[in-house]
Design a binder for these strands. Structure first.
Lengths: 230, 230
DNA sequence: CGTTTGTCTACTGTATACAGAATACAAAAC
DNA sequence: GTTTTGTATTCTGTATACAGTAGACAAACG
């Protein structure tokens, strides 16, 4: 009986899924820059797989919005205008605000206190060399935890999907001031969750996302002087 | 069947997309019932295509939540529990409420008056034989129009995706009383949109979706006496 | 009679082969 | 010199072939 469950746990993920993950990681890490062409034969050769599973993986990435198909020729890594980013954040705001609202009703004290102590720990080691990386990693966990605490798996998945998009254009440069502000916004969210106030949690999360959007946009206007027009 | 003419109609789109559309339609129309197995070779034979594009189409449908893959064997048309339906409506509520809120800011008077006159026309022809079909078709247009008026293409796409899910389990039986109530709820939404009150529009839409959920759930407990348990 | 094990079938996942479309480049015509 | 057209190359989209695996049924053993 416990053998079958074991077997299910160690099922190897399909080739398509692993290709999906690999290309996804290459995109969000910047290895495959925005706008770069995705030649299916050379990419397949690089990954040492055939084109069939690669095509399926690319199609999934296309549905995620990370890959764009021009006509029916030549897939490219998606490029995002400022308006695209606004749209993405607008949807993301709705999803994450909802997750906070729901989490305020469902979140367990254990998860809550874990998030809080992690936040506190981060606040106390502000000077560390690897502080920024830690803060970025925690930011990810923070949002995923709240999404999971919403109790709605589909909502969680959608949030995850939008987070991927955001990660692909938001390089998460470790500017300490920015991360610190995000951390403070997290505390407001935690407070609302701890006191079980759904609408306050929604608002705190919405404010947080809006603030992040502004930060990303301001950073974009500085860095993207020439947006790779030929 | 009119397979050859179907095949010709599919020409302009990519094969994968047309297979996607065809299977999608078969699912939401109930031709492929929930839980039915999707054998790739026989389905490919039926559609007169090869398995490769069919596989890609099925994978897309899987991402939409309309098809489920057990392990890595045998795709099935998704089955939805009452909890699944609640989750889906919860996300859908967030998306559609957001679209109404945004639409209150952006919707054009033309679109608004068109929606209102269509609603009025429907209200005045209550007795017609084909009233229910018309009402159902309009309901679809109503929500799509508001989603489009949100000015956020991604939000519109997500709403569309969730609408497909809903259509697949909500057979939209033409109970006039139900449709009439939905129509009244639409009027509340239109009023809020017309007077440019975003939060009122959000609330009216949220109430509408909640009301629809209750209706669907109550209908489900009646019809699904035996939910195809083995 | 029930349980186990072996074989057989059928289906899926992946690779490859092939055909048609798009692009680029060169040659010819104006 | 410029434009247009033809050809060649490359890449994508689709079909098919092949291999591995899950599931079913039957036979053998308890």
């Amino acid at each position: 009986m416990n053998v079958s469950s074991l077997k299910k746990n160690l099922r190897p993920l399909s080739l398509v899924d692993s290709i999906y993950q690999t290309v996804l990681e290459a995109i969000v890490s910047g290895q495959l820059p925005h706008g770069s062409e995705l030649n299916s034969v050379s990419l397949a050769k690089q990954l040492e797989v055939s084109r069939t599973p690669l095509r399926e993986a690319l199609r999934l990435l296309e549905r995620d919005g990370l890959v764009q198909q021009e006509g029916n020729h030549k897939a490219r890594v998606a490029e995002f205008s400022a308006d695209d980013i606004r749209e993405i954040y607008e949807v993301r705001l709705q999803l994450e605000a909802a997750s906070a609202e729901l989490a305020a009703k469902h979140i367990s004290p254990d998860v809550l206190s874990a998030l809080r102590s992690e936040t506190d720990a981060l606040n106390q080691h502000m000077g560390d060399v690897d502080w920024c990386e830690k803060a970025i990693a925690f930011d990810l966990r923070f949002h995923e935890a709240i999404a999971a605490a919403s109790g709605n798996k589909r909502l969680k998945d959608e949030i995850h999907r939008y987070r991927l998009l955001v990660r692909s254009f938001c390089v998460m440069t470790g500017r300490q001031a920015t991360l610190q502000q995000a951390l403070n916004e997290h505390i407001s969210i935690l407070d609302a969750l701890a006191t079980g106030r759904p609408s306050a949690a929604r608002k705190a999360m919405a404010d947080h996302i809006t603030s992040r959007l502004k930060e990303v946009l301001s950073r974009m206007t500085v860095t993207n002087k020439v947006p790779a027009s030929k």
